[in-house]
Amino acid sequence: RLIESLSQMLSMGFSDEGGWLTRLLQTKNYDIGAALDTIQ
């Protein structure tokens, strides 16, 4: 599930440099909407 969510976020133009996006998705239970809300 992480790989699916991460690949979708990467395709939106986000980077996972340093693993920050992986950690964010894990804390949000791989919910892309919740991750995007946090980023904004």
Rank of each mutant, 00 (worst) to 15 (best):
Q26V: 13
L24A: 01
F14V: 02
D37T: 11
S15F: 08
I3V: 13
R23E: 08
Q8Y: 13
R1K: 13
A35P: 04
Y30V: 04
S11Y: 06
D37L: 13
R23G: 03
E17G: 06
G18K: 06
M9F: 07
A34E: 09
T27Y: 13
R23V: 08
D37M: 13
Q40G: 10
D16E: 03
M12Q: 06
E4T: 10
G18C: 14
A34K: 10
M12L: 09
F14Q: 02
L21A: 00
I32N: 03
M12F: 08
L6N: 00
I3N: 12
Q40M: 15
R1P: 10
K28N: 12
A34W: 07
S5E: 04
T22R: 10
D16Y: 03
D31F: 06
Y30P: 02
G13R: 01
R23C: 12
I3A: 15
R23T: 09
L6V: 06
L2D: 06
D31G: 03
L21V: 05
G19E: 06
L25F: 04
S11G: 11
Q40F: 15
I32G: 02
T22V: 05
S11R: 12
M9I: 05
M9P: 00
S15N: 14
L25R: 01
I39H: 03
M12N: 04
G33L: 14
K28M: 14
G19H: 06
R23Q: 10
M12G: 02
Q40D: 08
N29H: 09
G18A: 08
T27V: 13
Q40P: 05
G18S: 09
S5P: 06
G19P: 02
I32Y: 04
E17F: 11
Y30W: 10
L10K: 10
L10G: 03
S11H: 11
L25T: 00
F14G: 04
L24D: 00
I39P: 02
F14W: 09
L25Y: 01
M12V: 03
W20G: 01
L21D: 00
L21Y: 02
L6E: 00
R23M: 09
A34D: 08
L24M: 05
Q40V: 12
I3S: 14
L2Y: 10
L36F: 07
L21W: 03
L6Q: 01
G18P: 02
I3D: 12
S15G: 08
T27M: 15
L24R: 01
I3H: 14
L10I: 13
K28H: 15
T38N: 08
D16P: 02
D31P: 03
Q40I: 13
G19R: 04
T27W: 15
L24E: 00
E4F: 09
G33E: 14
Q26S: 09
E4H: 12
N29G: 11
R1T: 12
S5R: 06
S5I: 13
S11K: 13
L36K: 02
K28D: 02
A34H: 05
Q26R: 14
D16M: 04
L36N: 02
D37G: 09
T27K: 14
L21H: 01
S5F: 14
S7I: 12
A35G: 02
W20D: 02
L10Y: 08
S15Y: 09
S5N: 04
S11T: 10
A34P: 03
G33D: 14
S15D: 15
R1I: 10
R1L: 12
N29F: 10
T38R: 06
M12W: 10
I3Q: 15
T38K: 07
A34M: 09
G18R: 07
E17T: 12
L2P: 04
D31A: 06
G13P: 01
W20F: 05
W20A: 05
A35D: 02
L10F: 11
N29I: 08
A34R: 08
G13C: 11
W20Q: 02
L2E: 07
T38G: 06
L21K: 01
L24K: 01
D31Y: 06
K28A: 11
I32W: 08
D31R: 02
Q26N: 06
D31S: 09
I3F: 14
D31I: 07
I39M: 06
N29T: 03
L6T: 00
S7D: 09
A35S: 07
Q26M: 14
S11Q: 13
L24N: 00
M12P: 01
I3M: 14
A35R: 01
M12R: 07
T38Y: 15
G19W: 06
G18T: 08
Y30D: 03
A34T: 05
K28F: 14
L6D: 00
N29A: 11
G33N: 14
L36Q: 02
D37E: 15
E17S: 10
D16I: 06
A35Q: 03
E4P: 07
L10T: 07
M9W: 06
A34Y: 06
G13Y: 09
S7N: 14
M12K: 07
M12H: 05
I3G: 11
G13D: 01
Q8R: 13
Q26L: 12
G18D: 10
Q8T: 12
Y30E: 02
G19T: 03
S7W: 12
F14L: 06
E4R: 11
L6M: 07
Q26W: 09
L6Y: 03
A34I: 08
I39A: 03
L10N: 05
L10D: 02
N29D: 10
M9E: 01
Q26F: 09
W20P: 00
